[in-house]
Design a protein around this nucleic acid. Structure first.
Lengths: 146, 146
DNA sequence: TGAATCTCTACTGAAATAATAGATATTCTG
DNA sequence: CAGAATATCTATTATTTCAGTAGAGATTCA
């Protein structure tokens, strides 16, 4: 049970955008270079983040990406949710019809509670919180471009 | 991000064993029939559960499986941990050397905290708790054999 | 006009997941 | 002792998901 690269890269992508918040659009190429992630792959993460209203894009020359809301108004839950789909640990929690045992299944309760506690944690953390932590740690060295 | 069938089936398997705790060994075949899971596949879950000391087996005729400890002494964390491996949501939390960014990575903190809160929840629930819930719900109807 | 940039569709390789098949070893019971 | 019942093991396979790549198209600025 792991968070996939979609969720992990997505968080890094958003932290990167938050870091440059207010300084004009950020190039996907720069994020890819700095975070060492394939640009093409990153783009696949942009799409759902955009469609869910977390980022805006500016096309054409001098274009790029910017956050659609202030970092304090974006929670980790929104980000992960957009990228990994539901935050439920098993299908039957959200969709009881997925299993005929749903009504009488004790383990379903377990997964429901675990899912909920997990989602609550992600909801309690905003991009602004992440930015604070990042500042405390200092950014990794060797960062000429962005 | 989903719990795989290993973890899900494993919990059901253990609840089944707990239900029959003290009534002699339970046949894998019966668990498979009642829970509607392939017997062969279930056996693959038995192995790690046994090797971690959660269940005992009795070979030969009149054999089967029994819990190695009372239900109240078995946590969900032990079960899931045995079946899904580490409970960490990303590798770098347990193994910083898995990523060169580990030291300065804010998102790693996020995953570490989320992993911890998840593990804590699973640790707080025992098989006995699950049994209580199952009793409240009543077992699914149509259970002639076990 | 042309360079810079986002956008899209499609494809591919690798890994994990879920399950199956068939043979072997052990123990109880009559 | 014979044989039925049961756990144990090794190997194989099919399916799905994950991660990444390729290349063409659309838009905007200067």
């Amino acid at each position: 049970m792991r968070i996939s690269t979609r969720g992990r890269y997505g968080v890094r992508l958003m932290i990167e955008l938050a870091t440059h918040c207010g300084k004009g659009p950020v190039l996907l190429k720069d994020i890819a270079t700095y975070q060492n992630i394939s640009e093409k792959y990153l783009w696949q993460l942009i799409k759902p983040l955009k469609s869910v209203g977390l980022i805006n894009s500016i096309r054409g020359s001098k274009g790029g990406y910017v956050l659609a809301k202030p970092p304090a108004a974006i929670t980790m839950k929104e980000i992960i949710g957009a990228l990994e789909g539901s935050l439920c640990l098993v299908d039957c929690v959200d969709h009881p019809e997925a299993c005929e045992r749903s009504e009488s299944c004790a383990s379903r309760d377990l997964w429901g509670e675990a899912s909920q506690i997990f989602a609550k944690k992600l909801e309690s953390l905003t991009l602004a919180d992440m930015l604070d932590r990042q500042k405390q740690k200092g950014r990794p060295s060797g960062n000429p471009t962005i």
